[in-house]
Design a protein around this nucleic acid. Structure first.
Lengths: 181, 181
DNA sequence: ACCTGAACACCGTTCAAGT
DNA sequence: ACCTGAACACCGTTCAAGT
């Protein structure tokens, strides 16, 4: 007589995402996840091959959530701002996806195919087909680097971080606009 | 009769740095470090309070090495390039310092006081005192973000990564030069 | 004064045994 | 068919006992 399922992949991933924000990546142990979904650790292996696969599922869910937030009409500034907003709501998930520790899964596309598409479209208008990808990478790199430094307390020389964000965003967009061909 | 010392903090940190590059942060276990310096794990605690303190020492040694490489006459481009060169020699150490996993020590200053000073001097010339810090942060964020994406395989849309680096570097420097005040 | 084995509380993971 | 306790090989860390 088969027992009814006592949990699900979804519940497991959700528990892992909560633990990630509450206790960091190191807090996402199979035991902690199991306890949260009301099961013993060995049972998790019926739904998920390993801890590292579970972390990968968390990263993919994060990318999915990020993609949903992107408005189809968003400007470059709006894209960067929404990435930064997200980073403040889910800092641990953001870092897992954007600057993963070696061994963690690689994030697909610049930051999710949807945002990536929109960004490429915008940079194409700005700098032309020939340099669209390079321009998109410049913006993504700046935003990811900035946010990562912000989350890690890398801005410890004083000054207003908000100003630095606005400064960087406007200057970079302006720079891309000044094309010589 | 006191026994002669069989190891030292220096040897321990060196072993940890080697293991970091060879096996990643997870490979830096007290047992692996101990074995490499020819001692048992508990003995390490005579010289180093804990594993996380050891990781912190590794991060500080990395920052020190980075500082030594900075030429006093380096240009902005040279600074960015030397950071990227370093990231290819010691990718794991670079990531530990620039985009640390939560729990790891915070890197002091933008990227080592020395490079930070030189960069601020250059941006002061470029954009003036008022925006020097913001400009330095823009460049640091872009370089750190770019390199981190490069190391993590984040550039998976094709295109030439070398071109994207050169494109970003020249455009950003140019953008900062076009000041309106 | 330094080093060690033994021990403790954890990990991830496997597997035979239960229902 | 799912769940479990027990077990294994690891962790970091402490500490009494050796030299």
């Amino acid at each position: 007589m088969p027992t009814p399922d006592r949990t699900s992949v979804d519940a497991i991933v959700t528990a892992a995402r909560e633990l990630l924000e509450e206790d960091g990546l190191a807090g996402v142990t199979m035991q902690a996840v199991a306890e949260r979904v009301g099961v013993r650790a060995p049972s998790l292996y019926k739904r998920v091959e390993s801890r590292s696969r579970l972390i990968q599922l968390v990263a993919e869910a994060t990318l999915g959530e990020l993609a949903v937030r992107v408005e189809p009409e968003a400007s470059i500034l709006a894209l960067a701002n929404s990435l930064r907003t997200f980073s403040k709501e889910r800092p641990a998930a953001f870092q897992l996806v954007m600057t993963p520790p070696p061994g963690a899964p690689v994030a697909r596309a610049e930051f999710g195919a949807r945002a990536s598409d929109r960004l490429l479209q915008l940079t194409r208008d700005l700098v032309g087909e020939r340099h669209a990808l390079e321009a998109a990478r410049t913006i993504t790199a700046w935003a990811a680097g900035f946010i990562s430094m912000e989350l890690n307390g890398g801005f410890n020389l004083g000054g207003d971080v908000e100003d630095a964000w606005a400064f960087g965003a406007t200057r970079i967009v302006a720079a891309l606009g000044n094309v010589d061909e």
